[in-house]
Design a protein around this nucleic acid. Sequence first.
DNA 1: TGTCGTTGTAATTGATAAAGTTACAACTAA
DNA 2: TTAGTTGTAACTTTATCAATTACAACGACA
Lengths: 138, 138
Amino acid sequence: MRYSSRLTVAAHILMCIRYFHGKEKLTSDFLAGSVNVNPVVVRNILGKLKKAGLVKVEAGIGGASLARDPADITLLDVFNAVETDTDLFHFHENPNPECPVGRSVHPVLGEQLAGVQSAMERHLESITLKDLMSGISE
Amino acid sequence: MRYSSRLTVAAHILMCIRYFHGKEKLTSDFLAGSVNVNPVVVRNILGKLKKAGLVKVEAGIGGASLARDPADITLLDVFNAVETDTDLFHFHENPNPECPVGRSVHPVLGEQLAGVQSAMERHLESITLKDLMSGISE
DNA sequence: TGTCGTTGTAATTGATAAAGTTACAACTAA
DNA sequence: TTAGTTGTAACTTTATCAATTACAACGACA
């Protein structure tokens, strides 16, 4: 099992909000049309992005907009906003404490894998919404 | 969703094989006792490690051993051996091709995320079984 | 003020994958 | 031949994602 598609869907949504800002009314229905997912999925993700302070959503009237400059929104922000469990690797529970290896596995491996995790996160942090927008043709 | 616990279980198994080499007969039952999982799970993972050329398993008589020096077995080797789908992130299918953003999402985002993936893999590659063994107390 | 379009959210369903377990054929040494 | 082990297949349980239905709450505007 690996991460859900929420990060890529969320990135898609943010790119749409930026691209169509001022041109279209950015309702969950409209966004769902571009991403091609259910509007409720859009509303859920938009809710998480809102909670993380990345977007503003107008309740009632409808429409979403960015809460920050595109250069200030990184993929790590999006990742942390939408992913419930951000841990890359999982440990099996209850290794045998009688065994010298079983006793040490979690701390030893955990330390090494934490380095892998942070390498990934630093890389995600280096990518901004602005970077992504530069790949969209007018 | 994220990666399964197969990587950590496989690492645990390899550490056990190294640690108990020459001291114990390393059957799937014995290994399962240290990891605290079902012996069949051990046999399945051992089969993948064997296919990847990391271990040797004696059919019939029983017992597993390393096929390479611990300094030549990296966590990336183990990762690729046991994980069926190594892609970190997933895309939603069928974005709307009529939309300029929907049309470009996959190539643009895909290129950036490939960089994240390879950052993770390079880091996994830098960790060897020998490194892990040095954390086990005698 | 009341209607309409929209958001926020809960509940249900179906699909997919992981992990545990049972069962048994195939293999090897003694 | 027998005992112990590996290699697999099949089934079960559990968990999560994503789609969907349903509906209350909200806000602009006729």
